[in-house]
Design a protein around this nucleic acid. Structure first.
Length: 621
DNA sequence: CCCCCCCC
């Protein structure tokens, strides 16, 4: 019979009084689901060290699946590889220290153990004074309680008059500064933060910081800035509005470590955040931020997952990538007015190269563009650069959630510097931003619905916009679907029927005895949001009808409108161009079919699933 | 309380 793991007897008392015990071994005696927002249940465990019970052990949500798989059943013995304690201001009766389990290893299954080990009793004592030696816990000041002696800890009310209560100076909530125990700052992992506990201090590194931004809408106006925070356990987005924005803007610096407490926690809107956290936080007037001037080595440095520039070619638009390269070329500042909101934009495109012997265009915006100095060809690191596609080439953008570092002091940076200074940048073989040759498929093929295309004001001016849509043809305008064109192979100009058997081409300045039919079909296509009249020219029309233009022309002569009816009620993926075209004095937003292809349902569904994930945050990785 | 992230 397999050995049953030994419990770390007495560890609960130490842990609950703030003493760090390395990887304690405990037994799970029960669990209870606490419903959270958006289906994010949290599990509350009853754990025992053989001596004491703790009914306020919370499982970090990322471990929920262990429970779902039945690996945390009653009597299971586990090792707590990573945990933290956290004060919860539970009620008027005082605070409670909760054990948050971040990582664990199952040592012996509940089935194998088969019984409760020892005769543990609920831990009711006040937390002991910090002890440097676990084996000599300070005697706890007993605060006996009538309802915690029965072992059925679930449902029992907090009883201890906690020294961390509001009247006590060492409370996290009370003190702006984090309290210290044994010379170490007591902090909470970001992964353990939730709206259900408001007394915490995190020690976090700023990985990104936005500029100060103003907004003005129906609900009011104001300004804000946001930042991304990271520690060993996870990451979270924080935003400061108005006064708080002013108060903290200068203090917050990218890459620095801060103690932060008293922020509001709320559910993150997954539509706008790629960070791996169900919550985000808001700085309030109560918020305290202290630069960390002690040991920050426990907070990981920014992590980078560098993508070689040559590989950016294979990355989907909108994805975020970490890129490091040497700025080989620096473009001029460009200013333009946004199409949808008349906003003034400033951008600058620079070219990065790396030892994958490829180059990519990086677009800087606003102040980053204005202040950029590329004449020394610095090494540029961008964390979370946003990939976009234009004309079949990929570019990267410094967008929201991206941060740029110039000449970063990291090995990859020094390596690139050496590579470039020894002529490495002279042999660049490919530019992933190169647009494919004009004509054919040189356009951005973002998936949009007709409704979205309208919202984005696509084709609102004389510059074309391109997108693709899955739609069905449901109405074909039969009149003038064909025209008689110049018979010369290179000329498709409409000819004038001279009514004498001759057809005159003004372009070629010549009359012919024959002509060729060309297609110019206007049709209404619809997706699930609305419909548009679009125009398709010869080759697309031939594809849709499965016949040559000549055959179609003759069919129409013989059958009239019926000749085009076979087009109806078929679905395709349409690549469309939207562009404002002038007819006399009147501008008309015209859509032209550039390309049709049968619906590849696998690909289309992939797009839909991605859309759903972005909208709901469900299943996002 | 933002949630715009652009342009060729």
């Amino acid at each position: 019979m397999a050995r049953i793991a030994t419990l770390t007897t007495g560890c609960m008392e130490s842990i609950l009084s703030g003493v760090d015990i390395d990887k304690p071994v405990v037994q799970i005696l029960g669990s209870k689901k606490i419903p959270g927002p958006e289906g994010t249940d949290r599990l509350r465990l009853l754990v025992s060290d053989g001596k004491h019970l703790n009914s306020f052990a919370m499982l970090a949500t990322q471990l929920n699946d262990l429970h779902a798989k039945g690996e945390l059943d009653e009597n299971t013995i586990v090792r707590l590889d990573r945990y933290c304690t956290s004060m919860v201001n539970k009620s008027e009766k005082g605070d409670r220290r909760v054990l948050v389990i971040l990582e664990l290893t199952v040592l012996t299954s509940g089935l194998q153990v088969g019984k409760k080990i020892g005769t543990p009793v609920p831990y009711t004592g006040e937390p002991q004074k910090p002890a440097s030696n676990v084996s000599k816990p300070a005697p706890s000041a007993a605060t006996p309680s009538s309802n915690t002696s029965n072992g059925s800890a679930f449902g029992s009310r907090p009883t201890a008059a906690s020294p961390y209560g509001a009247s006590n100076g060492s409370s996290f909530g009370r003190n702006a500064a984090p309290s210290t125990q044994g010379g170490q700052q007591l902090t909470h992992p970001i992964a353990s933060l939730s709206p259900y506990q408001n007394r915490w201090v995190i020690k976090a590194r700023v990985t990104a910081k936005s500029g100060m931004r103003s907004w003005s809408n129906a609900k009011g106006e104001g300004k804000l800035f946001s930042m991304d925070l990271m520690d060993e356990s996870g990451e979270i987005r924080a935003t400061a509005f108005r006064d708080a924005a002013d108060k903290f803007y200068d203090l917050i610096e990218v890459d620095k470590v801060y103690y932060i407490s008293k922020c509001q926690l709320k559910s993150a809107n997954k539509q706008f955040s790629t960070l791996n956290n169900d919550y985000e936080m808001t700085f309030t007037n109560e918020t305290t931020v202290q630069p960390c001037d002690d040991d920050e080595s426990c907070i990981p440095k920014m992590q980078f997952n560098f993508v070689p520039i040559a590989q950016i070619a294979n990355i989907e638009p909108k994805a975020a990538v970490d890129v490091i390269g040497v700025c080989k070329e620096t473009g001029e500042i460009q200013r333009f007015t946004g199409r949808t909101n008349n906003k003034e934009f400033i951008k600058r495109e620079i070219t990065l190269v790396d030892s994958s012997n490829a180059s990519v265009a990086l677009t800087l915006w606003g102040d980053d563009a204005v202040n950029f100095d590329g004449h020394v060809q610095p090494v540029i690191l961008v964390k979370g650069a946003r990939v976009s596609e234009f004309g079949g080439g990929k570019t990267i953008n410094l967008g929201v959630g991206s941060s740029m570092k110039i000449n970063p002091d990291i090995p990859e940076g020094h390596k690139l510097r050496g590579w470039f200074d020894n002529g490495g940048g002279d042999e660049i073989q490919s530019n992933v931003s190169t647009r494919s040759a004009a004509g054919g498929g040189s356009f951005n093929t973002e998936w949009l619905t007709f409704h979205e295309a309208q919202l984005k004001n696509l084709g609102a001016d004389d510059k074309p916009d391109y997108f693709q849509v899955k739609a069905v043809i449901h109405m074909v305008k039969a009149t003038n679907a064909t025209y008689k064109a110049c018979p010369q192979p290179d000329c498709n100009k409409k000819v004038i029927d001279e009514e004498n058997g001759m057809y005159r081409c003004e372009k070629c300045n010549q009359s012919y005895t024959n002509f060729k039919y060309r297609l110019l079909i206007n049709m209404s296509v619809a997706d699930w949001t609305s419909n548009r009249w679009v125009t398709c020219f010869n080759e697309i029309g031939e594809q849709l009808l499965g016949k040559s233009a000549q055959e179609v022309g003759r069919d129409i002569e013989e059958q009239g409108e019926a000749a085009l009816q076979t087009m109806n009620f078929k679905s395709y993926v349409f690549k469309l161009r939207a562009k404002m075209e002038m007819f006399g004095d009147v501008g008309r937003n015209k859509m032209t079919v550039m390309n049709i292809s049968p619906v590849n349902y696998k690909e289309y569904n992939r797009h839909l699933i991605k859309d759903l994930q972005e909208l709901t945050g469900i299943g996002k990785v």
